[in-house]
Design a protein around this nucleic acid. Structure first.
Lengths: 124, 124
DNA sequence: ATCTATAACTTGCATTTTGCAATTTAAATG
DNA sequence: CATTTAAATTGCAAAATGCAAGTTATAGAT
């Protein structure tokens, strides 16, 4: 909890302490969209910097939102996936998406994902 | 839109460009809770700085999320209230709250607001 | 008239975070 | 061996935040 001397019991504030920055939420979006690897996140059109990406992935893992598993014998090559805890943020991302679709011109979702995995996740 | 050369059509990204920072969301929370005046926002337990508060209120007004009206003949004394556009962010704040209640220990809502105004807003 | 209190900022400056680009690391491949 | 690839790390500048003091414009008291 950020600012431990300034404890707030407000669930909104506590949640925002964990995920209340733009890059974290964008990384979560990408995870919901099925991206798993570092270079995939780097490829998103918002252009996250490598240091920010590494930092956010580490934080998300520390908070138990994601977990990483090797996908190669190269010990630094990890794929990331949402944990149950991370997946429970789906409604948040979805609400954000819905607001954007209704209120920001020029936004659209593309490539409708098939039902099933990430069914409750955001689409972009 | 932030980073105009890095335009993203993703509704999530566009929304986050507008409100994707902790303080903006906390100010929005307070507005949903019925706070209207500068010193009321300052009184929240997260301890926003005066420069950040002034900045966020200005931005929210510029984006059409809030409007300000004088409450005193003192020309600097304004009360702020959500516009329709701002109120439509209710589901976002509510999703964030719900996640916090489910996932962050020690969080709670207090003083249940009566149904009616802000019925769809967050409670904290 | 002056002085004090109040509310809403603004300002100055230190600290932290972000953004950019280069570099490093550890593996696979030719 | 050298080169390529993927996932970081690093160095540094720019931007944002945080803290505290200061300013402004009014109301109210003296």
């Amino acid at each position: 909890m950020q600012g431990s001397d300034r404890r707030s019991n407000c669930p909104i504030a506590c949640t925002l302490d964990l995920i209340g920055d733009r890059w974290t939420l964008l990384v979560l979006r990408d995870l919901f969209l099925g991206k798993t690897r570092y270079d995939e996140f780097l490829g998103s059109s918002e252009g996250i910097s490598t240091n920010i990406l590494a930092d956010r992935l580490r934080r998300l893992e520390t908070m138990g939102m994601i977990e990483k598993t090797p996908y190669s014998s190269h010990r630094r090559r990890m794929q990331y996936s949402l944990t149950e805890r991370g997946r429970s943020l789906g409604p948040v991302l979805r609400a954000i998406r819905d607001w954007g679709l209704d209120n920001v011109s020029g936004t659209e979702t593309f490539r409708q994902r098939p039902p099933g995995r990430n069914e409750r996740g955001p689409q972009a």
